[in-house]
Simulated scan of single mutants.
Amino acid sequence: MDTYPVYQWFSALLCYPEAELIEVLPEFQTALNEWPQLSRQAGRLQMFLDYLNSHSLRELQENYVATFDRNRNHALYIFEHVYGEDRDRGSAMVDLLEEYRSGGFELGDEELPDYLPVLLEYLSQVPAEYAQKLLGDAVHVIAHIGNKLARNDSPYAVLLQGLTELSPIRPMPLTEPPVRDMDEAMETFGPDIAGIEPLLRPSVETIQFYPKAAFQTALKGA
């Protein structure tokens, strides 16, 4: 099976930096120098490896937490940028989890399926052509996060931009999902059948990374 290990390269670099990552940075450098898939953007990606090499592990970890854990605009959870707090996010999570299981890919107990490094790890294990299709589905969100990181001068922006370059699909602007105001929604839409939550109907159209119809189509073609 022809797979695309370059996705693992990005996946590891987007995870919380640990000492083990720093120890194997020479291997990441070798891959950047030799893999043709990265040659067009080697200069930009080199800046990220230089960033890792020029800071202490503690500095890298503190910056990672400040960038991704304390700023929801940069969250690496894909569906957070698509659905916000809408209940459809849970359904999308189930669909993506089933996609992973159909490919024999099992998550750990503490991992969420829409975490970008997890998705990239999965893409590295499926046939390259199918991985490219899934990347094309997700690229709108990936580019959206990358643009926000770039506006904040984050060194991680180049990784998201690099993934965008690998996509066969040109990203489209992503509509920000509305934050659900429970009181206002109750007044506007009325309660749901249980009388607990508002009966929400999205007022804006958002780009769906992995809607149910696409998931069923993917399974038929897998």
Results as ranks from 00 to 15, higher is better:
G84P: 05
F105G: 08
H74T: 07
Y210I: 13
L97K: 10
L60H: 04
H74A: 08
S54G: 12
L149H: 00
V82W: 00
R72L: 08
V24E: 11
V139S: 06
L52N: 08
F189I: 09
Q132I: 01
F10K: 04
L60N: 07
G103F: 15
A143E: 00
L45E: 01
M47Q: 15
G136Y: 02
Y77D: 01
V141Y: 00
L199H: 03
Y122Q: 10
W35E: 14
C15G: 12
P17Y: 09
V65D: 02
L159P: 02
F215D: 13
L49F: 01
S11H: 02
R58P: 06
C15Q: 14
R72D: 09
Q161K: 01
P178S: 10
T217I: 09
Y64R: 05
F48C: 02
N152K: 14
E59L: 01
N71R: 10
A213L: 13
G108D: 13
I142T: 01
Y77F: 09
A138T: 09
R170M: 11
P5D: 04
V158K: 00
Q29E: 15
V126N: 13
A150F: 06
D153C: 13
H144K: 03
V179E: 07
N53W: 05
Y7L: 06
L135S: 10
Y7G: 08
E80K: 09
E59R: 02
P26C: 06
L160K: 01
V141I: 06
A128W: 06
S102H: 15
N53Y: 00
D86R: 09
N71T: 14
E176P: 02
S91Q: 11
V6Q: 01
Q29L: 11
N152I: 13
E20V: 12
Q41E: 06
Q41D: 09
E18D: 08
A143Q: 02
R70G: 10
Q161G: 01
Q161E: 05
D88M: 14
L174Y: 03
A31Q: 15
E23Q: 13
E99R: 14
Y130E: 15
N147T: 14
N147Q: 15
H140F: 03
I22K: 12
L14D: 04
L97R: 11
T164D: 09
L14V: 07
S39I: 01
N73L: 15
L21F: 08
L116I: 02
E205P: 01
D181A: 11
A131T: 02
Q29R: 15
Y16T: 05
G221E: 15
E59I: 00
R58G: 05
Y122K: 11
M172V: 13
P171Y: 01
E110Q: 06
Y64L: 06
R151K: 14
P177R: 05
A185L: 12
I193A: 14
R40F: 07
E85A: 15
H144Y: 10
Q216L: 12
M182K: 15
T67M: 05
L13T: 06
N73F: 14
A213T: 14
V139N: 04
P178D: 12
V141A: 07
F189R: 01
E27H: 14
L97Y: 09
E18S: 09
N33Y: 07
G84V: 10
P26V: 10
D88E: 14
K148A: 11
S39R: 05
G162H: 06
H81A: 05
D69F: 04
K220L: 04
V65K: 02
L199S: 10
A19Q: 10
L120Q: 00
F215H: 11
H144C: 09
R44H: 06
P178G: 05
D69K: 07
Y210V: 11
P177M: 00
E80L: 02
